[in-house]
Design a protein around this nucleic acid. Structure first.
Lengths: 342, 342
DNA sequence: TATCAACACGAAACCGTTTTCGTAAACTTA
DNA sequence: TAAGTTTACGAAAACGGTTTCGTGTTGATA
């Protein structure tokens, strides 16, 4: 019952021709006579012959696989990036091996080592927070030294020479804060993570820039730093909103913003009249929260598409040109109910 | 500068021994003398030799890759399942190639065909809605006929003999509705998708069963069917809630539930006093909505783990035993603010 | 009829491993 | 010292393809 995979050798033996003849016949080579080709092709079709990808990979030194390493899969932004990557990769005939580093340096390194030995033609990745904290990029450098193409997106480092795709986080934050100021807000808070994450830092910079431009003094106690990205446990946010007479909040992610809005509502604030909210990452929560959240869209899918295009271009370019590009996407502010829209 | 990949052949040539000697020395074979082994191992280490995975795959007829095909990546449930799969796969030394069918039959077929020719050792998948609609499973049957291990999860079919992992959707719906009835609700609505999806059907059955048990007549106009999973456009929901004097709603997904709650609030209903809501898929929206949503947790991560374990067990079992298991997980109802919790 | 090109195919190398088997050289043993 | 046993290594096949090159047969040409 079990139809085992058939190979060129089987066909050759059955039809009493050589393996090379079979191979050529199946590629419709001019070298082979019509009769022979038809016979071989018919036989191959009948037995559902399909060339073995592994053998082809070995011969061609090309796997048509690319690796994607992201810090977290249960996170809307990375998910959309992956979707963009997968779309382009499929269009160009590549499969995608997806690894999740879970924000761990070791997992990132291990995944790279396993896949860098012929399993994939190139890597697309976003750095784990632990890697950015350790500031150790030797695993990436080894990769590029071996001539394996690498594209970094969103969480990047300037210590590795490779193609990069990122969004202008600083400008996104700058424009958000500017908008809040123009809406008449005075005490604008920033809710961020610890700033070893490159993106968190950029966003803080944009916040500072906007305040400076409008001659508003930076107050340290208007900046709340929460430990981990998804944990909103504890009452830090509540104390913060209660004590600081904040009238607008920029959050570096959706969760913080949604959580902040709930607490503000509980404290009796009206959104957006008394307090406005803007959050990074225009994910699913922003669209469905109550009120809906004005968000800085990071265009994840587009980032994914560009990353994949850059990587595949490098993979398929003959010459090992050592020139690297950095694409910077402009974020878009999606206005919703959590801000006054003038 | 560019350190090209080094092979056994290079080492052999450089050290003037044979390739077989190098191979054995690196595996610490007893056949090779201490001196030679040390010399070869030192050289290999110095030049950072790593065996080529593709060559090993070809030799062993085992790729240590598994394919995961899911209908949608930007969907919390599938994302958590993937996370579970990836976790187990990594523990057992497998990489995961992730393909997204985008609910398309053709993409599902194409992805399978590409990967079924040696690229992976087995498949884990959840059927696309189009496939369930067409009711065509020949691509899956071909796979199993070739002896390639396959595990189906969540959206399965009984037309293909293979391992399966699913949650008891019917019971989840049944218990939800029972709870609503016990909370004193009389006019309980069901908001579902078109029922060619196996899971949607199961959930509807559970709804019917609970009503029947409590001698409540099924009213067709208490059942709202919306076209696509993520589109909540249009005012179908609003008309429905306004006209039908509904006092409880079971939704087959989060989005419908969140959307329903917003409209109910807009219409002046108090949740949960006037109207209660329960939604399937305990995702991120349920936790952060306002009010938070009582949800039927599907234990996606657990499903992923079980699927991966089943698949790898099949892959690594010598004998082609043709016995298949079906694991059924019990859902858990997570009570939150959208229901009265007695 | 000798020469030559075109045709149709096969042999063999190659991709990078693993593994079986064969065998010189060194060492034991009787 | 002849015979047998280790020891330490190499040759070669195998995995499943692709591709280059060589060659016997045919038919055309001079």
């Amino acid at each position: 019952m079990l139809k085992r995979k058939i190979t060129l050798k089987h066909i050759a033996r059955e039809l009493e021709v050589s393996i090379s003849t079979v191979s050529k016949a199946l590629k419709n080579s001019e070298e082979i006579s019509r009769d022979t080709k038809e016979k071989i092709q018919a036989f191959a079709k009948l037995y559902n012959y399909k060339p073995n990808n592994i053998a082809i990979s070995l011969k061609n030194k090309s796997t048509k696989n690319i690796a994607v390493i992201i810090p977290d899969i249960v996170h809307h932004f990375f998910t959309t990036v992956f979707h963009g990557i997968e779309k382009i990769a499929n269009e160009k005939g590549y499969n995608v091996i997806l690894c999740v580093s879970d924000e761990s340096f070791d997992k990132e390194v291990i995944n790279m080592e396993i896949l860098a030995n012929g399993s994939v033609d190139g890597f697309i990745m976003s750095l784990s927070s632990e890697t950015q904290l350790k500031n150790d990029y030797n695993h990436l450098k080894e990769l590029t030294e071996q001539g394996i193409p690498l594209v970094l997106f969103d969480r990047v480092t300037d210590q590795v020479a490779c193609d990069k795709v990122l969004i202008n986080d600083k400008d996104g934050a700058y424009r958000s804060v500017k908008k809040l100021i123009e809406n008449g807000k005075k005490r604008i808070a920033l809710v961020a993570t610890e700033d070893y994450l490159s993106v968190s830092k950029e966003r803080a910079d944009g916040y500072f820039q906007a305040l400076k431009e409008f001659d508003i003094a930076v107050e340290d106690n208007l900046i709340l730093k929460l430990p981990s990205m998804s944990s909103v446990e504890g009452d830090a946010m509540e104390l913060f909103l209660k004590n600081e007479k904040v009238d607008a909040v920029l959050c570096v992610n959706e969760i913080y913003a949604i959580h902040g809005m709930r607490i503000a509502q509980k404290l009796g604030f009206k959104i957006p009249q008394d307090i406005e909210f803007i959050g990074f990452t225009d994910g699913i929560l922003s669209k469905f929260s109550n009120p809906t959240l004005t968000a800085v869209a990071q265009h994840g899918e587009k980032m994914g598409e560009i990353s994949a295009e850059m990587l595949i271009e490098k993979i398929e370019s003959e010459n090992d040109v050592e020139t690297y590009r950095t694409e910077i996407l402009e974020p878009t502010i999606i206005e919703r109910e959590s801000t006054l829209n003038v």
